[in-house]
Each structure stands twice: as C-alpha cells, then as structure tokens.
Design a protein around this nucleic acid. Structure first.
Length: 792
RNA sequence: GCCGUGGUGGCGGAAUUGGUAGACGCGAUGGACUCAAAAUCCAUUGAUCGCAAGAUUGUGAGAGUUCGAGUCUCUCCCGCGGCACCA
C-alpha cells in the first residue's frame, strides 16, 4: 500500500462528510439527547493558535463517541463577535467592525474545518447578527420588566484607555482586564442588572453542579456570602435637637465577642454621609475625612498599609453591657462592606488590636459568650451579606447590542415594543469611543430621536450598548433554535415562539460544557444568572444551564510562555496540519497530558503520534479475513474496548490513546491481523483520528462512513485471562513474579511457590503466614530469626 | 490570612483507587538495513554498587497506620488558581 498521504486523504474526507451531510443534527425526541458545547470564540484578527482547538478536539471526540452510542448529539459552533476585541481590531485596521468580524469569522472557520470537526454548521450563530441580538434585546426587556434592570448614578469603574465603564468582573487587580490600564472611579449614568437578587440561588445551586472544584470555589468566593448580625449602638452625647447622628449600625460575624467591644470604627465614607446629612463636626475631623477619601480615590480604593484614625468625640453605648465606647474614623474600615462601621474588639481581632495599640485604646479581657447570648444581649438581627455587586451593564462603546429602551420626558424610561425589535445598530461614520462618557451612538441624532411608544411624543433612544458578555448569556439556548432564529428577524408576531419551542427544552440543559478557566467568575456567573431569570419566567425548564463542565488546561508555547504574538511563540494549526495532518494534531493535543492540565507545546513530540498513525496504516497490509487472537491478546482486545469508552467519558484521552497503542503494538507482532479486530480498532480510533480511520474503513470495502458505525461492545467474559502473573512478596518486599491459573486458590499458589527454586532462599526461614490477593499478589511472612540464627 | 488544586525518570506522563512504581510516548545509547543519509526494525534506558547473577535505594520533606503506602492519617515545604484590612 502506498504512503499515508494525509493532505490528500483529509481534504477528500472533509468534502465527503460535507456532501454526505453526516454531521447534520435535528430535533428527534425518539432518541436520547446529548448536548455538547464549546465556549465559542471571539473571532479575533489573529486567527487560531494550536491552543484554541484543544477543547474543541475533546468535545469532538466526546460527541462522536456519544453519537456512536446512539445519542442524538448537538455539537454546535458560533461566534461571540461583539465587544472590545473586535472593535479595537477594527479601529486599528481602519475597517468597520462588521467587515472585520466577517473576515475574521471566515478565517477562523477555515481553520476549524481543516481540523475535521463534526460541527453542524447549520446551527451556527453569530451574536452580532440582528436576527440573534433581537433576542438578546428581548431578554434584556424581560429583565427590565421584572425590575432587574435599573439606572444608577453611583461611581463605577471607568477604564480611561478603553473609555468605557466596566463591571467588577472586568477588573483584575484594580486594572482593566482587557488593556491593563489603572481603572478610575467615575460617577456616571449606568444601566445595572440586579444579579444580587439571585446571589443566594447562584450560590446554593453550585453544590449540585458537576463542575471542577476550583471553578465552583471561585464562584463561591466571588459571591462571598457572610452570615452575621446587625447590632445598633445608640449615640449618647448627640444633642437631641440637632441633625447629628443618633445611632450606628454595625455588621459583625462575631456576636460572641460583643462584651469585648472597646470602640467603634467607622469608614470615611460613612462619616462623609453624616456630614452631608448635617453633622456638626470639627474642622479637624472634616479635614481628616477628606484626607482619607482623597487617598482612596487616587489609590483606586486600595488598602492603605498604615492604619490611621481620629476620635470623633462621639460616644456610643454597647447594647450588651451599656458601656460607653468612643467612635473613631479609620482608614481600615471600608465604606462598601457591611454597614461601613465596625464594632472593634481588640482582644479578638488582629486589626482592631493593631489600631488599639497605636492609639492607646482599651483592650478588654471580657470573656466570650455564646453566639446566641451575644445576639440576645445586644438585640442583634441575623443578617446575610454578599460580596457580589450588581452588574454594571452598559458600555460607552459602539460595537455592542443597543439597549432597547426609549427615554420619554413624560413617560420616563419605556421599553421598545417587541414588534420593533431588533433595535439595529446604526451605521456610523466614526465608531471610535467619544471619551465623554457618551456612546458614539449619541451623535447620530436621527437614530437617537424617535417617538415614545407609550404616548407618541418625542423620545430619545438609550445610546449605551451592552457589554461583551451579553451575547454569551444565552447562546447555548440560541443553538437549539438556530433555524427559527434565522426565519424570525422580520416576523414580529411570533414573539415567544423561540422561547416556548419544544426543541429548546429537549436539548437543554447542556450536558457537557468545555472551555477555559478564565470564565469562572464572568461568563459562567452571568449565564447562570440569565438562565435563572428565564427559568423563573417559565421559558426554560431546568434551573441551571450547564450541568457538567470541564476546563481544558492552557497550551503554552515551546518556550513555556503563554502563546502570544509578542513572544513570537505562536504555532498555527494550519502549519502543523500541512506537515503532519489534522489527525496527528488531534491525537497529539489529546496525548500531551491530562486534559484539564496545561502543558508546553512541542512540535517534535508530535512525531510519536504520526508514527502511531503510520503503524496503523501499515498494519492494514497484515489484515486477513481469517486468523484469530490468542487468548491473551483477546483479553487485551476486550479490555481496550472497555477502557477507551470509559476514558472518553472521563475525558482521559491520553490514557485512551495509550491503551490503543498497546493493542496496536500487540497486533503488529502477529503475522496476520484478523479483519474484524482491525475494524474494531479503527472504530475505537475513529473519534480521535476521523480522516485516517474513514479512509482505511473504506479500503476495507465499506460504502458508508465509519462515523455512522455503532460503538463496539466488549465481551464481559473475556476481560480476565486464564493464565495470570501475580507478584510475590516476602515480608512485604517484591521478590519476583509467578504464573498461576486465574482461579487458583491460596493453597495452590502457596504450593507452587514452595516448589519454585527461585524463591527457596527467601522461604528458608519458614512461612509464618501468607496474604493472598487473588489475581494480584501473594505476600509471605517468614518466621523471625532467633538470636542464635535458628528459627525454631 | 482563608479556600481550592497540584508536586512521580532527561522530558510529557501511567498506576486497576491500598497490591509488580515508571505503562504509553518523546529523547538518548548500541545494533540491523543502506555506498551514505533519512525512514523503518531490534535491544537497552530511574539512581547507586557489581564483570555478572544480583543487591540496595527510589514518587516534595518528616513521622504514623498496615503484611504491604505514589495512594490513607498527621506535621511541614514548594508551585498554580480564587478571595482578602470582608468586620
């Protein structure tokens, strides 16, 4: 047989699969479903590097396997094309984002197709398609109508470089996650989503998810629940007729320490609020508050390493023991945590202790009481707090979904009626950010000016756009109804048809979701939030979108650094495929190591996978109609069928491949490989190396694709050999092995051992007892030697 | 600091969940084939000692449980990730 020409074979089979429509998927309630999902990419201008497809290869293998097992498998792909990366690329290259996105998608798609994925491209979606974002807008309106979207003028995170407001989730170490600029606090009008209303459910439902522990833990930390008690301290020396504060409310998780309180510490933010409400404080106090607030503003609300404080002169009463304690303004209490005021217990809290020492404050040795006694004695109220903040949902950028609201002087904020959706992103001359805090859309007056849907009077469109994450909050739903989506852009009457479709709840929830860990506290929280809202509204019938999640480990460049143009260490899959083939690439990425673990790319190491495929190619020459396996190889054969299936389910692709190699190594030793055995090997390998296996399958005389075959079954009775090798230990030390019959009992093994001269010297001392583990080992405990060297 | 996760040859990694540590692959060394090279095939390949048969040692460190520990328990050390003056 001539050489294995991967280029010719792969191109030919990719075309055949396309012509044969073998990857087409449809709603079919007669079959059990399996929804396998990849986190869809942002189609950047850079194209894919070899790290990107790792997850896609895994889901491809998984979904091919599930399909062969008889599941109706949905495994779609699409494009998350709104947002800053696409827009910045467009600005830099001076093309309209729409054009840039189309080009980038075409490139990404060509790269993906070369890898031989089984995506049904008829389910493809694109978040920037008006037919798609019509529904993103529609869901936003559902949130708005439910009171979960609201306007706010609170200071938010502003990235001076991206010139837009950001959500907490978009920050990394106080910097813009996208560009690394220091983020400022800026008061501006914002649309917020009330994700905090769902904090408890988002937290509680984590427990039931089959997700990696680290992601679940990240989400728990991010939601940051703390259970504590609210306690009120009356202020005693406040002049009753003035506007001076009358009481201070503190939040504590340690009511049991209430008798040890020696002062109250309040944040400068709370003190400022008092001043705004008319508190008559001294100049010194006012200046101190200003000083602390100034520090925080310029240091982006970071921690000041040095504790500072100033006594206010105010005294408050500890409700537990009626003792008066002084109230201090400090820089170690945060304004946006708890109530912005802390009951300080220097005896039990390190921070309070440091502060008390510095300012010579009392440190009480009052004993701890029970939690209940602390609450009862102080009249505290059990309270739950979360670190999670509401989601800043508007962006002052062009390339996002317009928020479908109209501002009317008479009627206030009004929803765009469903029949008028989508609110299409207008064409503009300049889509660069304005920097004024207004979106570029604000300049397009004939788009902005409209009529109020309620009163018919003058109305102005909301000009902020939605964040990057909006489109990905429901794309997994969109795939299930993608053909309806396309037909409905102009059809305004079918309002809820998409979200009442039976195929939607046939496919949902996603059974296997695969992507990177970087989405732990962004996309994966946002999507869960939207999903729960849709669940409450009755559109989806299961409260979680993704029941099972796997993270692929990061593929690093050959130099051990993250693949990036900057380091010049990017490997393009196209090049690898040209040289070695897509099947080799697929095998290598799965063989590199455990799927969820990262690893360093090595083009050199790929040669091993290529050799493996070539060995199979050559094994074809040894295939014969007749011929049988000896019993040992037959056992191995059955074990391999079992293991490959189990490993795919567990995402242990590296060991699945290795077990196939072991079997192939064995088959190579034969003078003739039985045809049915070889065919089974091809089927087992088909999800991993779809092109080569289909080619050989065809050469064996099959007219239909190997990918339409059923997954092979193994013979339960042929998983253990008749003859087996067990290990022999003497006093717990390995001393050799011995061949026994599979069902030999302890006595038989022991007898055989005693007659084996190889072990005579170890057993000379005499056998005290033996531990026999069937099919595993026998451990002989010898009699201890006596002082005189004898054993009797 | 709290939480999570990991640490095994020159390298990537296996190990039936307490039972032959290093499967499989890369690399390396020696050999066969070849005018030669590539490819392929065969052999060896944790370390130490030994001509050898073989012995000793070995899974981040130390203790423990057990006939037996990479695996279980305790105490540490280091890497990675999340949260963090969070009251």
């Amino acid at each position: 047989m001539k050489e294995y020409d991967h280029q010719e074979i792969e191109a030919r089979w990719q075309k055949k699969w396309w012509d044969w429509d073998i990857d087409k998927v449809g709603f079919d309630p007669s079959k059990p479903k399996c929804y396998v999902l990849d986190m869809f990419p942002y189609p950047s201008g850079e194209g894919l590097h070899v790290g990107h497809p790792k997850g896609y290869i895994a889901t491809d293998i998984y979904s091919r396997y599930q399909k062969m097992r008889g599941f109706n498998v949905l495994h779609p792909m699409g494009w998350d094309a709104f947002g800053l990366p696409a827009e910045n690329y467009a600005i830099k290259n001076k093309v309209h984002p729409k054009v840039a996105v189309a080009e980038n998608i075409a490139y990404f798609k060509s790269q993906l197709k070369k890898i031989g994925f089984n995506y049904d491209w008829e389910h493809e979606i694109n978040t920037t398609d008006p037919a798609y974002y019509k529904w993103t807008q529609w869901i936003f309106l559902k949130l708005f109508e439910k009171g979960l979207a609201y306007e706010s003028w609170e200071p938010i995170n502003w990235c001076p470089s991206c010139q837009t407001g950001l959500a907490n989730e978009d920050l990394e170490d106080g910097k813009c996650e996208r560009c690394g600029s220091m983020v400022e606090k800026k008061p501006m009008r914002q649309w917020m989503l009330k994700i905090t209303d769902y904090a408890e459910r988002l937290l509680a439902d984590i427990d039931g998810l089959n997700w990696p522990e680290s992601i679940k833990e990240s989400q728990r930390n991010w939601i940051g629940k703390s259970e504590g008690v609210l306690v009120k301290f009356e202020i005693t020396n406040s002049k009753s007729e003035t506007k001076n504060p009358k009481e201070i409310e503190v939040f504590t998780t340690r009511p049991d320490t209430i008798f040890g309180v020696t002062f109250l510490a309040i944040s400068p933010e709370l003190a400022k609020k008092w001043l705004d409400d008319g508190w008559e404080a001294s100049e010194e106090v006012k200046n101190f508050i200003d000083e602390l607030l100034q520090w925080r503003a310029t240091n982006n609300f970071k921690t000041d390493p040095e504790k500072k404080g100033l006594a206010t002169g105010i005294l408050a009463v500890n409700p537990a023991n009626n003792e008066q304690v002084p109230v201090w303004i400090t820089n170690y209490v945060l304004g946006d945590v708890g109530t912005g005021a802390v009951m300080a217990v220097p005896a039990h809290d390190e921070r309070d202790f440091d502060f008390a020492q510095k300012y010579n404050l009392l440190i009480s040795d009052a004993p701890l009481v029970s939690r209940e006694e602390g609450i009862n004695s102080s009249g505290g109220i059990n309270t739950v707090r979360y670190k999670l903040k509401d989601w800043v949902f508007s962006r002052q950028r062009y390339w996002g979904e317009p928020i479908p609201l109209i501002h009317c002087e008479k009627c206030g904020v009004v929803s765009v009626p469903e029949k008028d959706l989508p609110v299409v992103l207008p064409e503009v001359e300049h889509y660069e950010p304005t920097g004024t805090g207004e979106s570029p859309l604000a300049n397009i007056t004939d788009w902005v000016n409209t009529t109020c849907p309620k009163c018919g009077g003058l109305g102005k469109r909301e000009t902020n756009t939605m964040p990057q994450w909006a489109g990905s909050c429901w794309y997994y739903i969109a795939y299930t109804v993608s053909e309806k989506l396309k037909s409905q852009i102009t059809n305004s009457k079918v309002s809820d048809l998409i979200f009442n479709a039976s195929d939607l709840n046939y496919w949902l929830p996603v059974d296997m979701y695969v992507g990177g860990t970087e989405h732990a506290t962004r996309h994966l929280i946002y999507a869960r939030f939207w999903h729960k809202v849709l669940f409450d509204l009755g559109y989806v019938s299961y409260p979680e979108p993704f029941t099972k999640l796997k993270n692929q480990g990061l593929v690093l460049g050959e130099d051990g650094r993250k693949m990036s143009k900057r380091w010049g260490n990017v490997v393009n899959p196209d090049d690898v495929i040209e040289l070695y083939g897509a099947d080799t690439l697929r095998l290598y990425e799965m063989f590199m190591g455990p799927f969820e673990q990262g690893g360093v790319w090595s083009t050199n190491s790929m040669i091993g996978m290529r050799r493996f495929l070539e060995r199979i190619w050559r094994l074809m020459d040894k295939v014969g109609e007749v011929g049988t396996l000896n019993s040992e190889t037959e056992v191995l054969f059955n074990q391999t069928i079992k293991k490959v299936g189990e490993d795919i389910i567990a995402f242990q692709f590296n060991t699945a491949i290795s077990s196939l190699m072991i079997l192939v190594n064995k088959l190579e030793e034969l003078t003739q490989a039985p045809k049915n055995v070889f065919e089974t090997v091809l089927i087992l390998l088909a999800p991993f190396a779809p092109h080569l296996t289909d080619e050989l399958w065809g050469r064996l005389g099959h007219a239909k694709s190997i990918h339409l075959q059923a997954w092979p079954k193994f013979n339960e009775t042929k998983l253990i050999s008749e003859q087996t090798t067990i290990s022999v230990q003497v006093n717990g030390k390995m001393r050799g092995t011995i061949n026994i019959k599979h069902d030999d009992g302890e006595e038989e093994v022991l007898n055989q051992l005693k007659n084996d001269p190889a072990f005579a010297k170890w057993l000379a001392k005499g056998i005290e007892r033996a531990i026999y583990v069937p099919d595993r080992l026998i451990n002989i405990i010898t009699r201890p030697l006596l002082d005189d060297g004898s054993n009797k």
